[in-house]
């Protein structure tokens, strides 16, 4: 009899615990869901490069520029900034397969680069064939570095370079010629992407145009910029919160590219 009572009590306790668990599950669950649903941005910069031969110049304003970008997105765009800073050592693995870069909606890199690669502080290159962007969350990546997209003008991924990295990401923004380290390039790119007065005279520009027009402010007519995308419709993408991506893309062997000569 006493054993039966104990069993009944144990049963009711288990039921209570289960019910409580379900209650907690239901009430607490929306919080992590909301956090995951928030628009996320991140950025890396390299200011000081290791010594090597040939020597690589340090860059004066990469930190400031990256911070400006993330601050603008956080303060005016409501973005969640998960990685904000020089979380050294920035390694290849942060950009390559299943990378931390890929776990954000938009990502900003500020440092040296060349056709089909970016250069990390330890002079290690992140090459186009080592990265796959869009596996997770990434829609747009901005490479504020020299010549990154110089060779991406064929429309066929196999003959491009960073175009091969498009694996769900919608746009890669870069340049054909060199860029300078400037403290507020990113500030204007972010500023164009976001409508500051919500319904007033200000207007959000597409991600593509924001890259071109934002950089045009500080560059002369020798500077040529380029953006590559999975297809033509990606040129109509707005930032999440400003209109968002235009339609779904089909990952295939071709890509689109847009080239802009600064004023």
């Amino acid at each position: 009899m006493r054993i039966k009572d104990h069993k009944r009590k144990l049963g009711s306790n288990i039921c209570m615990i289960l019910a409580l668990s379900v209650f907690l599950w239901i009430t607490i669950l929306p919080i992590p869901l909301l956090a995951e649903d928030a628009y996320e941005a991140a950025g890396y910069w390299v200011e000081e490069y290791d010594w090597g031969w040939p020597p690589v110049l340090d860059l004066d304003y990469t930190e400031e520029d990256t911070q400006e970008f993330l601050d603008y997105l956080e303060n005016s765009g409501g973005y969640l900034i998960n990685i904000k800073g020089d979380e050294s050592p920035v390694a290849q693995i942060d950009f390559t397969y299943n990378s931390r870069a890929d776990s954000h909606d938009i990502f900003w890199f500020d440092g040296h680069g060349g056709a089909g690669h970016i250069l990390l502080a330890n002079l290690e290159k992140v090459e186009y064939d080592e990265v796959s962007w869009g596996d997770y969350d990434l829609e747009w990546i901005m490479l504020h570095a020299c010549e990154t997209l110089a060779d991406d003008d064929t429309g066929t991924k196999s003959t491009g370079k960073f175009a091969q990295a498009l694996n769900g990401a919608r746009l890669i923004c870069g340049s054909v010629t060199s860029l300078i380290s400037h403290p507020t390039d990113s500030y204007y790119v972010a500023g164009y992407m976001i409508d500051d007065d919500g319904g007033g005279a200000d207007v959000a520009y597409t991600v593509l145009l924001s890259w071109f027009l934002g950089l045009d402010i500080h560059y002369d007519d020798g500077t040529v910029l380029r953006v590559i995308g999975e297809d033509n419709y990606c040129s109509l993408d707005y930032l999440w919160g400003q209109g968002g991506p235009y339609g779904n893309t089909q990952i295939d062997s071709s890509f689109s590219y847009w080239t802009y000569t600064c004023d």
Partner: peptide, 22 residues
Amino acid sequence: VGEPSNTNFGQMTMSNPEKDKI
């Protein structure tokens, strides 16, 4: 035609109602 507004990045901006001329 319309009222200009200050953006957060050092510009004063005007646009038409269709928002296709800025």
